[in-house]
Amino acid sequence: MKNFLIAALATTVFAVPAVAGDYPWKPDKPITIIVPWGAGGATDQVTRVTAGVLEDELGQNVVVVNQPGASGSIGKKNAWEAPRDGYTWAAGAPKQLGTYKLLGQWDTWIDNWRLYNTVTNVPLVSVNPSSPYKDMGQLLKAMAEKEIAVATAGAGSSGHAAIEGIKSVTGIKYKHVTYDGGNPAVIATVGGETEVTTQLASEQAEMVRGGRLRPLAVLASQPLEIEGYGTVPPITDYIDKPLPILSTAFGIFIPKEGTPEEVIETFNMIWEKAIPNSKALKDYALQKGALFTPVYGDEARDKVWPEIQSDAWSFHAAGRAKISPEELGIPKP
């Protein structure tokens, strides 16, 4: 029985693809990607898809480990403190790397990390189908008059930033109701505990497709296509003032200092070819109502920068920043 078990395990653990791409770096043990959030969430899902692509390319197991806690800083810190050999990565929204210092949570900075982005998520305003609001215009009108309960994944979450963004340009009122994550917030709206949710489209896609949520507007400047539902109009159709940037890029990243050159070189090559052509990631994005935005290195940093600016100044406005964004060299957007 025991031998059987060991044999079985051996076949699984060592069942790595024989054919791997030709890269300067050939990892000889499993690579770990730390997801600093719980299993099953948005970061976790996209990271697992990414890990699959990496496994195929590198011919080595890529293990996804969940280390949640303290707004994702614990897991990222563990990646920071790991040996700089290319075997430990962190995943998540890189924009957070630019705001931890601001919030007094952790002394790290976006330029200490090398970024490899995969998808970008956008917030979506949806209501419970039994609510009277048929389009964003009606909802905005109602919200100008009374406090409507809005479900988000908590202070500082994408959903919170979204409703705050709308509030900042329209002056609406709302009652902020926070949940443990995007999914629970969406479910609370489906279940009718709250009337509105402004979480990420990716967290709402299934419910929108199933007719359990009515999407009113996407917080972007162009319409959003959700497979199996159709097109959701952009918020700019209803508000003509400029809104803060509310999209969130996701990806994996590694400390710049000390990480071997061949590791960086290898991942650059993967992000140059394999990732942009990955069917798994493309399908994932389309199903989830996310944008597929594979970029790396400085280009990725440039893409993330406006997100950091936007977040930093809204944290500042909300009184949550421990130091001024200007001190960190983050100019007002």
Binding site: A39, G210, G211
Partner: peptide
């Protein structure tokens, strides 16, 4: 939750539909 993530990864889309 992990099982759900795995289903997505394998192209099965659970949900109301």
């Amino acid at each position: 939750a992990v099982l759900l993530a795995a289903m997505f990864i394998h192209g099965v889309r659970p949900g109301p539909l």
